[in-house]
């Protein structure tokens, strides 16, 4: 079944977009800043995992390399907020936007300087293996990507719904003034949100580099994930994932059934269409305050 293969590969790519979009939305909801370096954080996370795990590099076991990359990206995210973004608090949004765009260039340069500009693959246990389902052959890497994304989504859901810190993160993104008044340490929460966005980016990067290859320019994938976040409704976490999956699903079908060269346009055309029909995105949590 060719359709099934297209769907699985679309969902796998979409998972990666969705996880990057999740990082966009996490940071935007909490701090009202848009982190345009989110894609580049994904790329850096992948490179750190690769640098730790690949045999030609440090050669640590795969799982250890993954854990290391996730922790390192969480630390990098936290540090960025602490050292840079916090000082832009209360400044116009455009300042943070420019700064994160510059940050993206910086991360690409750093990654290029350390690991070079040629595509590298992350050595991992599922690469090249296949899963036979009835008459269909599926890439194990793609199935694993989807599974990991589902698992991470579930964990994040539990974290935001069940833990005190998770609810406090929601609270401070919904009403910062009230959060301050209730004694929620809003600034520390912002730092933790950046750490979480960094960790999510690392997972996205590991998944992406496991089923293909990575080079410093991969960070531009962030733009596609940004479109996904907009389609899903910027500000909604389930929306970000759904937007990612939608973009991911569109791509393989567009390139299969449309003339060559038109396929890359489709996700953005869908974004325009969504913006015209539902300006807040598909899963927008629009809440008009009662006055």
């Amino acid at each position: 079944m060719e359709i099934l293969q297209l769907i699985v590969s679309g969902l796998a790519n979409g998972s990666v977009y969705g996880l990057i979009a999740l990082g966009f939305v996490l940071i935007y909801k909490a701090t009202e800043q848009v982190n345009f370096a989110q894609g580049d954080m994904m790329m850096l996370g992948a490179f750190i995992a690769l640098g730790l795990g690949n045999d030609s590099q440090l050669g640590a076991p795969f799982w250890l390399a993954c854990a290391g990359a996730i922790l390192a990206m969480a630390a990098i995210g936290w540090t960025l907020e602490r050292a840079v973004l916090r000082h832009l608090f209360g400044q116009p949004q455009i300042a943070a936007m420019m700064l994160t765009i510059a940050l993206g260039f910086l991360l690409r340069f750093v990654a290029g300087a350390i690991w070079g500009h040629d595509p590298l693959a992350l050595e991992n246990p599922v690469a090249g293996k296949t899963l036979r389902l009835g008459g269909t052959v599926l890439g194990l890497d793609e199935v694993a990507t989807i599974a990991v994304t589902v698992l991470l989504t579930g964990l994040l859901y539990l974290f935001f719904r069940r833990t005190r810190l998770g609810v406090a993160m929601q609270a401070s993104s919904q009403n910062q003034l009230a959060a301050y008044c209730m004694g929620i340490p809003v600034r520390r929460v912002h730092g933790l949100i950046w750490a979480l966005a960094g960790a999510t980016a690392a997972v996205a990067g590991i998944l992406f580099a496991s089923k293909g290859s990575i080079d410093p320019g991969t960070g531009f994938l962030g733009i596609k994930a940004f479109a996904a976040a907009v389609i899903g409704g910027f500000g909604s976490l389930p929306g970000a994932l759904a937007g990612g999956l939608i973009v991911g699903l569109i791509e393989p079908f567009a390139s299969r059934y449309l003339a060559t060269g038109y396929a890359p346009i489709v996700p953005y055309a869908v974004m325009l269409l969504v913006l015209v029909v539902r300006p807040h995105g598909i899963f927008a949590q629009v809440h008009a305050k009662k006055v």
Binding site: A171, A178, G183, V291
Partner: peptide
């Protein structure tokens, strides 16, 4: 010392119960 700000600043998307839990955050 707790401040109830002007204009009914609740956490709109959290449930009433979660709002109350946030009151006891500290």
């Amino acid at each position: 010392l707790v401040h109830v700000p002007e204009g009914r600043e609740v956490f709109p998307l959290l449930s009433v119960e979660e709002n109350l839990e946030m009151g006891a955050y500290t």
